[in-house]
Write a protein that binds this DNA or RNA. Structure first.
Lengths: 229, 229
DNA sequence: TCTTGCATACTACCATACAAGTCAAGAGAG
DNA sequence: CTCTCTTGACTTGTATGGTAGTATGCAAGA
């Protein structure tokens, strides 16, 4: 993975600060387990690797630490945060609470254009069945984002994205376990309930859907105990 | 407000980094409206004021910007974020969703020690009636924190704290409007419902309680339009 | 064998210097 | 007077140097 160098970067890309590029790159690497929980990384090392100074690296580190993805131990080093069972479960809890209220809102006043949009997502998701886990995770994120955006809760979506980061690390590790088809079925039930204006059914569907990780977590913890705190 | 200087700081206080001290100080100043929405602040200015270099100030700024309390405009300046009606409403929405699920959990298995703890909070809150708004806001925060902690959702509480920051700025401005007695009554109804194991009642109580800001917001926006985006 | 002291090589934290973008005031031309 | 351009004083972004705290390995001693 190569970060755009100042000299090679054109004027357009200069709009995005070095910090933001580093942040996005490192965040993706952590979630995709390219940087494994517990791994040690240093400001100097990353700075040299991408050909930038230590300062923007440091600031990217701070952002990731705020998100719970890095652990900065003063004068000791910086490490990819090990997965905390409690942190994942709490993230799941928050996400369920927020998304439940979102789909209730949607079901109380179903908009045909939104329903159509969601059904398009479902079609795309079915195409992915049997494909790569990475592709499905992206499609899944787009689907849930559409739900939040449809309810006019873009700011709430930001919260969910933060929570998702914790969960997605587990998701990625468990990508060989979960059945994409089953998840798409759950999405379908959710959309159906929203379309019918069945707020209770929609709430039940999303809550059940988001409880899925509760089954994966213990399995992953047993398979990769070194990734857990 | 004076930041501890390195030479005066004893060995114990050295544990807290300059960044964290600045962050806490500035955050409080913003919420208390000492730094008003739209106000311009610069890294250099703050650094000189507290006798530190620009770097820790900058990092504190970044943290506050991530929280939506500052707006950093590259090469232009840094400003206290104006209050966004949508951001406040979304923060309220997220908070209601999360706290609703928390109190449902509590009501499903009421713990006598927690109930007693909550009732102690209520007593203290009644003592504050007629007192300063600042005192009540602290007591209110402690009460809601006890709810989250009682459900074992400390990580969820962190999310709420972030959301609260947006709301508290409005709260502080509207402190001459709201009736502390009414809020304490709502807290009492909530605790009663939890104690009785009435999950539905507890949920209804917290949702109603947290909708209060919806009445304050338009009033504040009319009184201080310059604070809003 | 185990402990203790110390040299050494790291680390992140903070200070400082430089670079680059923004904006407004003012000089100068029309 | 009005418009344009330039200049310079800001701003934040990035680079680099210095400092104190921490881990580690080794040597000396119990």
């Amino acid at each position: 993975m190569q970060l755009a160098r100042p000299d090679t970067a054109s004027l357009q890309t200069m709009r995005v600060s070095v910090v933001d590029q580093l942040y996005a790159t490192l965040r993706g690497a952590i979630i995709d387990n390219d940087l494994s929980p517990g791994a040690r990384i240093s400001e100097t090392e990353i700075a040299q690797h991408y050909g930038v100074s230590r300062q923007p690296v440091r600031e990217a580190f701070i952002k990731l630490a705020n998100e719970g993805l890095l652990e900065i131990r003063p004068q000791r080093g910086t490490f990819v945060a090990k997965i905390s069972r409690l942190a994942v479960m709490d993230a799941r809890f928050v996400r369920e609470a927020v998304e439940a209220d979102i789909v209730k809102l949607l079901a109380q006043a179903p908009e045909p254009t939104l329903i159509a949009d969601l059904r398009n997502h479902l079609v795309r998701q079915r195409d992915i069945i049997g494909g790569s886990a990475r592709d499905f995770m992206e499609a899944d994120e787009a689907f849930h984002h559409t739900l939040a955006a449809g309810a006019g809760k873009e700011n709430a979506w930001r919260v969910i994205v933060e929570m998702k980061a914790q969960m997605d690390r587990v998701r990625f590790l468990s990508s060989m376990h979960f059945s994409v088809a089953r998840l798409v079925d759950q999405h379908t039930q959710l959309v159906d309930a929203i379309a019918e204006g069945d707020a209770g059914g929609a709430e039940q569907a999303i809550r059940f859907h988001l409880k899925g990780i509760q089954q994966d977590l213990p399995v992953i913890e047993q398979e990769h105990p070194e990734y857990f705190r």
